[in-house]
Design a protein around this nucleic acid. Sequence first.
RNA 1: GGGCGGUUAGCUCAGUUGGAAGAGCGUUCGGUUUACACCCGAAAGGUCACAAGUUCGAGCCUUGUACCGCCCACCA
Length: 874
Amino acid sequence: MKTDISKIYNSSEVESGWYDFWETQGYFRADADSTDPPFVIVMPPPNVTGSLHMGHMLNHTVHDVIIRRKRMQGFNTLWLPGTDHAGIATQNVVERQLRQEGLTRHDLGREKFIERVWEWKREYGDLITQQIRRIGDSCDWSRQRFTLDESLSGAVREVFVRLFEERLIYRGERLINWCPRCRTALSDLEVEYESLEGKLYHIRYSIAGSADEFVEVATTRPETMLGDTAIAVHPEDERYVHLKDSSGVLPLVGRKLPFIQDRVVDREFGTGVVKVTPAHDPADFDMGERHGLKRIGVIDEDGRITPEGGAYSGLDRFEARKQILSDLEAQGFLTRVEAHVHNVGHCSRCRAIVEPLLSTQWFVDVKPLAKEAIRAVEDGDIRFVPANWAKTYFEWMYNIRDWCISRQLWWGHRIPAWYCPCGEIIVSRSDPTVCPKCGSEEITQDEDVLDTWFSSQLWPFSTMGWPGETDDLTAFYPTSLLVTGFDIIFFWVARMIMAGLKFAGDVPFKEVYITGLVRDIERKKLSKSKGNAGDPMLVCDEYGTDAVRFTLARLGAPGADFVLSEDQLDGYRAFATKIWNAARFILRSEAESDRPVTEDEIQLDDLSLADRWILSRQTRAVDDVNRALDRYFLHEGAHSIYQFFWHEFCDWYLEMVKLHPEQSRPVLLHVFEKTLRTLHPFMPFITEELWQRIPHNGASIVIAPYPKLRADFVDEAVERDAGLIQEIIVKVRNIRAEVNVEAKQFVPLRVGTEDPGIQAMLMRQEAYIKRLARVESLEVVGKLTGERAAAQAVAGDVALEVPLAGVIDLEAEQARLGREMEKVRREISALEGKLSNKKFVERAPREVVEENHQRLADYQGKAVRLAEGIARLR
RNA sequence: GGGCGGUUAGCUCAGUUGGAAGAGCGUUCGGUUUACACCCGAAAGGUCACAAGUUCGAGCCUUGUACCGCCCACCA
């Protein structure tokens, strides 16, 4: 037990040593052989390139609060950490570095480049795991994983091969999303649509064999016309039925384009005539399929016009657009240009405009997997918190489309497919050396790597050793809970569910907690001047990690966005300071005889009112916290413990205890110690620091038991008595403030009540009133006799007056009591109205009716006493 | 076009079997009371977006309206 305690709470000092202690003691390590019930979370692996942002910190706070409490409750907890190789993101970072050296990845070649990325990872990849330690996350570092670890790569390969064998992975030429900047294919999810102000160009296409007849098409992308292979109209559009069997002529190129009829054409839009470019537009691709159209690719992987584009060959796509427009205009084909807002797809990594391109890629046929995954959520095998996110999940799953998984990158899991000149494609668990079909040794491996999410989707079981049959899988799979943001429900959550069911034989987790978004702090213009208030490490430096964690827990209701502001952080830093100062107060009067006090040792009968009251209130607070946390309502749990600690323990109990410090010492120590345990999941550092300094059992608060409900500590009568005393104290303080009594002056107090029980109680407990309300003498009478020089108030059905000669302003006093009376009358008439309503009395539950009667009686008593008080003023 | 969420105190937000409107910050007034001025004490402040409905009773349930936000979608 440390005895010294600094006067000022210094968060960075408090937060510096404990993590190493916890880690070396092995408190965070899970035991696959334990017989305790497991509680398991796998950490959503952050990108190795990354550094922690506020979103992470919120997410990790939720994780850690939940997992620390479970650990204290005796679960065999595992929080498995790790990082993601993040294909495009990481490769971009290293390529940027190379560019500064005047190099491209091609200058290095594949092997050297990958070695370079690994070097980079070794150097910087630890940053984020250090940050994770800094914020106190209680993860099991002995089980840390990286998606490119050998065993995880083995899992990826196994899954690829199995899906290929089941024909759920296939290779084919499709229209895919292509990022010309990253030079890779993207999945649909990696394309982000942005509404942009563009132009709608109207272009005249003449009719073949007719001198003056023409149709007008509208397009936002004139450059794709080079790849047009048809003109489409709606089959029931009378304006164009006559063109059914004719052709149009492509301007500038002269190619003949057949007219086709298709129901997707919107007759209302533009002229109702659409140019069809199957190689560069998803809708046109589908039409091309339906009508057997030729596909002419006119834009290449760099976003330049291909030789198919004739005169425009080699031009950048946007340059070509300008050129084509000016040529069209010069030749009179461009009839009209109008402003047009439309959605443009951007690469989610580099923001370049995505090009729909015809390309041969690998795909997963996910529909069969989705079926099981939908069922798992429908059947409640997986529960979303909040529940409505399941709708988002279903929506996507019902409409799920094939997943393009190949990426033209070097950093990632290389596709385990080999090609033989004979045409054979070999997909295998081990690297082949010869073609099994023709025996050729000329086989070459596919150059591409897999989408990063292909490996992430296996995370809950690949990290535990799958496809091996490991103890960890037996002990910890399926995991208990996944905590993540709604932005990756499709990318990750849905795919893990599919993969888990398919390969690990069970759902990957039983519950999914969806966090909200931490809205940009800049919205409040708080950070601009400070530079980086959004960086959680800087925020933790400034406010203390415990305070930041508490703030996030307090504000982040499941699924709800919130703004993190400096005001909020200030408030919860003050909370940490408050805890510190309370501890200082307690440690001030440290005694030799101090020792840990367990609940069972407490003899309720021997205790003061204050002690019994705080035990009762704490019991309720602990119960509130537990019920809130059982539902993952961290915000409510944080609120309950905050209110209890500050406004009951500090504001009332510590003040009351000053009357009988020695007598209350055991309860004081007990309640404070238990409060620290209740708080520990939210504020791990300060609670450990203080817990170690006060009497306690055990080596660390990390493994101390989490407080449970002690129903026998709840005492309604005590709470009622203490409540009345507190109310009287507040009323006296109120009077003192109203009539400007100096703080140091003690005043006389007279309390009137005809209830002998209350009279006796007040006499017994008068010391509290005297001290906390600064009262010199307390007189308890049946009825207030009244003098003019008295300020009056009513607490419950008890009246009181402060007989202070000469200081009272009669008019003000009258006005004050009048206002009070007004309120009481309003309550009475509302309650009378309610209770005279026959239907209410008949149909409302008896307790509710009874309660209303009780309240009415209370208010009526109040009214009588107020009336007496007002009368006595005259 | 479809789906989801939001609208409660000056600000940021809580509010689950429907049963007396809450917190933090801010505001006003007063405070060197032996833990704490990152504090203490006292107070002010709300037609719960609007409208109908269900109910004895609605911030909460139903329907509609308005505004704001997000997601999905092949009107070029």
